[in-house]
Structures are given as structure tokens and as C-alpha cells.
Design a protein around this nucleic acid. Structure first.
Lengths: 208, 208
DNA sequence: TGCCTAATAGTACGAGCGTTCGATTAATTC
DNA sequence: GAATTAATCGAACGCTCGTACTATTAGGCA
């Protein structure tokens, strides 16, 4: 799970350790809440010792984003790609995504908190974040398109609409479970997704 | 729209003006991004001059939340309460909510950004925010319950599920339109809502 | 072991933060 | 208009921030 090995040089090792701690801190307090001094405390190092591993705070923040992205890929994206194309893969993507956000209720999803933090700023951090979320939405869209091509979903379905609603269900999960601490949110996310698929996979009285 | 009048004392007048500017700033940079010095600059006042109107920064932040809540009620809640009970009222609530978020794409919805900022902090600001969002979700739930009682929605429908999915559609709208700047998001929110209502208002092949 | 370089510590700087306090100006009341 | 109170300013405090420098320690290799 973590990216260290005993064959790394000392510096790379502590750098990786700092990033692990930084990811944890950023999950809780946001990317913008990351602070060199705070990391130094948690690492029992001096500020300058921590700082020396990154050219700037901004670089550190971007490295944290990349690390989060890596974890997300490992836990959600790659396992789903092993499922067969079409609906099974799409369902796996959603299920693992829910699972991950559920685990993250205590810590927080950086894609979601980051989107709120950087919706009005510009610069490299925002660009990095937008790129990652585009990548994930793109993967969802491709899986949906394949599900349509394979006849799992109705041909006139708009993949963007599916992705939009899936994202909404996850955002609501994060909102209700993490912020409001309301129980039962996971069930509601899953019910919503089942209704979404049910709705777009079978013929109903009037088609669009 | 703003809450000033020529019969107020000078102090109350500038206090209200500061809050207007603060609300605007907080919409963009978040409640946590509010800064006395920044407000002083925008108001062409001294830091201490601004500060004197509030006992602390935290008080200022809470006042900003209350002002936002007031606007939200005026634009979304009260107009919807004039619609007839049940589905029409629920539809009005969603439509005005979408309309408000659409207008806010340039500035930002404080309920949504605040939820991300305070999902892991505690204190009076979080409490205030949670209270407001509970109030709004409660209103949505009541409208849904009435729609069920009046036969507009199927009797076995779970109001919490409806509110959850409505909230998700709005969160996705905020995410895609404001953060990703993706066009067509408003349409997707409305299509999602229509499908939601359609789905829970009519008999389908197998009921839950 | 000794050397060279990599890794960390220590200190300092300038800026911005919320807040306090006393002085000063403006508005309100008599 | 004078007296009184409200509103605003200006300077200062202690704190934390990111970053730049130099000094010191530890690691890796001959």
C-alpha cells in the first residue's frame, strides 16, 4: 500500500513518509490546510528538514494529489478494469467507489473536498485536480458507452447523464455521511444507483 | 434585497454593508477564507474599524451564514411555500434551488462549500451550518411527505430517499458547473429530477 | 577508516493573521 | 452650539506562515 522499499535512499524514504502523513492531514483539513510546520511536528522533524524535500509548498500539495490519485486507481479503477466490459464493470466502479468513500467518511475524499477548495482559484493545483477528475469521469463515461454498445443499457441513453447522476449519488453520500453524519446514507446511494441502472436498462412505457 | 434602511444608525448601516461584502467574499473563498484585513481593504476601512462591529472573526462568520440563510429563504423557500402542497411545491423547491445554484455558479453556494469546509471541524460555525442544512432538508422532506399523502407520489416511497437524490443532483450541478465549468449541467439536473419524480409517481412493472 | 555528498537542523526574515487599547473623529442628542 | 456617545483609526502585540540561508550531522562508497 505505501510506496517505500528498503532499497530506497534515506531521503526518498522520509520523503515518502512525509507524503503519507501529508495525505492523511490533507484528507482531514483539505489541501489548502496543509502546513509545513504541522507536518514537521507530526514527523518530529524541523520545518526546514521537511521543506527540503519539496521545492515549495505548492509542489508538496501537488505530490499529495498524485499520491491520492494513485491510491484511488489502485482501489477503485484497476480492480474494476478486471471485470468484464459493460454493465458489470460500471457496477464494480460504483460499488468500489462507494466502498472507498465509506471508508473515507472518517478522513475525507480529496477529489470532493478539493473540488470545493479550488472551484474559484486557478493555478497548477487546480489544473492537476481537474485533470484527475476528468480522467475518472472519462473512465466512467467509457464504461457506460461500452454498456450501451453491449446492449446492457438502452441505446438512446446519454452517457454524460449516467455519469452525472452517479457522481451526484456519491457527492450526496459524502455530504450526508461525512458532514451531517447521517446513518443509512450508503443504502440510499445504492438504492439510487440501482434505480438509475434499472431505469436505463429496460424498456418502459414511453421511451425518450 | 439588502437589509438596510435610511432610518438605521450609521453603525448598523456600515455593519450591514460589511456583511454584504463579506457574504460575497465568503461565497468565493469560503467561510474559512474570510479575513478582516481583506474586508477592510474592500470597505476602505481600517482593520480595527471593521473588527469593532463584531466581537470576533467567528461572530462575523456566523453572521455571514445567517445572511446567506436569509437570502436562501427569500429566494427558494418562501416562494415555494406559496405553491400548492404536494408535488407542485416540491417541484418549485427544486426548480428555484437549481435556479439559485445556477446564478451562484460564478460566486458559489455557501451551504455546499461550507459542508466541505466544516465536515471535520467542530464549534459554533459548524453547528450553525448543520442547523441550516437540516432545516432545508427538513422542508424538502415535509414537502415530499405531503406529496405522498396527497397521492402524488407512491405511498411506499421513502421521503429520505427522494431528498437524498435531490440533494445529489444539486451537488453534482455545483460540482460540474462551478468546479469543472462543464456546460449542460443544468439540463442534466433537471432530467435527473424528472426521472426521479416520474419513477416514484407512477406504477411500474414491479413495485418495491 | 576517511571522504564526499546527502539529509537534517537552526535561525532569521517579511508578511499576514486576529485582537487589544488608547486616541481621534464623526454622528446624535440636548 | 455644546455635550455626549458612537464610530473609526492607528499602532502594537504575539502568533504562524512559507521560504532562504548557513551550519551541522549522518549515510554511502572508496
Amino acid at each position: 500500500m505505501n510506496m517505500t522499499s528498503k532499497f530506497m535512499r534515506k531521503g526518498e524514504l522520509t520523503r515518502a513518509a512525509i507524503l503519507d502523513v501529508a495525505l492523511d492531514a490533507a484528507s482531514r483539513d483539505g489541501i489548502e490546510g496543509l502546513t509545513i510546520g504541522l507536518l514537521a511536528d507530526k514527523m518530529n522533524m524541523s520545518k526546514s528538514g521537511v521543506f527540503a524535500h519539496f521545492g515549495s509548498r505548492e509542489d508538496l500539495q501537488i505530490e499529495v494529489l498524485k499520491l491520492y490519485h494513485h491510491h484511488f486507481e489502485q482501489e477503485v479503477f484497476y480492480p474494476s478494469m478486471k471485470e468484464e466490459r459493460g454493465l458489470p464493470r460500471l457496477q464494480s466502479m460504483f460499488a468500489l467507489w462507494v466502498k472507498r468513500v465509506t471508508v473515507e467518511i472518517a478522513s475525507g475524499c480529496i477529489y470532493i473536498s478539493g473540488a470545493a477548495e479550488y472551484d474559484d482559484r486557478q493555478g497548477p493545483i487546480r489544473d492537476e485536480l481537474v485533470g484527475m477528475i476528468h480522467a475518472w469521469q472519462g473512465a466512467l463515461r467509457r464504461a457506460t458507452t461500452q454498456a450501451i454498445q453491449l446492449g446492457h443499457l438502452r441505446p438512446e441513453v446519454d452517457p454524460e447523464q449516467i455519469v452525472y447522476e452517479m457522481y451526484g449519488l456519491i457527492l450526496a453520500l459524502h455530504h450526508d455521511a461525512r458532514f451531517l453524519r447521517k446513518p443509512g446514507s450508503v443504502d440510499r446511494a445504492e438504492i439510487g444507483f440501482e434505480r438509475l441502472i434499472e431505469n436505463y436498462s429496460r424498456q418502459t412505457a414511453e421511451q425518450v
